[in-house]
Design a protein around this nucleic acid. Sequence first.
DNA 1: GTCCGGTCAA
DNA 2: TTGACTGGAC
Length: 305
Amino acid sequence: MTEPTFAELVSRWYEENARDLPWRKPDVGAWAILVSEVMLQQTPVVRVLPAWEAWLARWPVPAALAADSPAEAIRMWGRLGYPRRALRLRECAVAIVERHGGSVPDRLDQLLALPGVGTYTARAVAAFAYGQRHPVVDTNVRRVVCRAIAGEPDAGPTTRPADLVATEELLPEEPAAAALASAAFMELGALICTARAPHCDRCPVESTCAWRASGQEAPAGPTRRPQRYAGTDRQVRGLLLRVLRETTGPVPHQRLDQVWADDVQRARALAGLVEDGLVEPVGTEAFRLAGDGPAPPLPTPNLTY
DNA sequence: GTCCGGTCAA
DNA sequence: TTGACTGGAC
């Protein structure tokens, strides 16, 4: 009898303990999975859930989103944060229509070439939507592998090629089992092997965890600079965008002036939104969400002769 | 106040 | 390699 592997232990735990998330249901297509991965990039599951449902109800296929305006995408993004993701997801839909006939590609290089799709998301879609064998490494997986295998207290701030290799070595050979294991690693990091207060008493690999065995050392020091939000351009961008989102069409600049008192910072934030393609000037006195114009005129039947 | 994280551009 | 990019939960 051989000992169960690390991936087998975590996968068994996953099958008993995974959260019941809608994008994990068996009949969910690649587009829905791609949308969920982009939304989850920097955002907790609970906030993504309603936005994902609404987004896919409105745009069930990439071509539907590609045909709609950036403004509508930004509006539907709501308060998920990092609204450039909405813009990129729409650009991604356009690219999928133009390059791949409207179907989410299944090749890693083609996924990586899509706007807003990076190392993590490309592998997540290839694995979870298409059942391919790829290491899928987000911050949770990096932490799990770093602790349980290397015995180190903390993973580095970014995913490095070595992290992909270390994770790949843990995957079962069979592609579907590998995809399941990747989902299981992520879930373990999200629910048990959490950053600050891990629940080792409920961990399926506690007995083989190198970090646990070595005394569960705390991370050496702060690995990240303190993050601030209040008072930053980020906050001002958010406030400006909220006003624009809640209005259809142009908003007079006087109304935008009310969201933030500091003229210099407000102007800088607004210029940044324009620079990012989220907002566009209308004349000299107003701004609107990108493409939030009147519907393009329908071709009118020629009745004039 | 503190925590959180993938992508992209600089 | 570093920093910009949000907004909600705690």
